[in-house]
């Protein structure tokens, strides 16, 4: 029965308070950046502006990669068109 299932869940000690406590201590790492290695320390300096730069650069490089790929595919298609035109006229 559904009712008893809910009952069972409420009674278990497995209920976790996720509103006031973190699931695990691994989130503590965010406040311990001063103990992190020097690369991470440098990345988190200057009010985290490097993080925004990193995110922006990833987006820019992905878009750039896409544009270059489309451009190259189009170039290939143009070559094929040209060759088939030469064949058909000769």
């Amino acid at each position: 029965m559904i009712f008893s299932l809910i009952q069972a869940q409420e009674d278990t000690t497995a209920a976790v308070d996720t509103l006031t406590k973190a699931y695990s201590n691994k989130w503590d790492a965010a406040s311990n950046l001063q103990h992190a290695n020097s690369v991470l320390k440098a990345a988190s300096s200057h009010d985290l502006i490097f993080i925004v730069l990193g995110v922006t650069l990833i987006i820019w490089f992905v878009l750039l990669f896409f544009i270059i790929r489309v451009d190259k595919k189009l170039g290939k298609l143009e070559n094929e068109m040209e060759q088939s035109n030469v064949k058909s006229t000769s």
Binding site: I49, F50, V52, L53, T56, L57, W60, F61, L64, I68
Partner: peptide, 13 residues
Amino acid sequence: AVWMTGVIIAGFL
């Protein structure tokens, strides 16, 4: 491509 990458980096830093 290189120019715009430079602009983004300079714009942030």
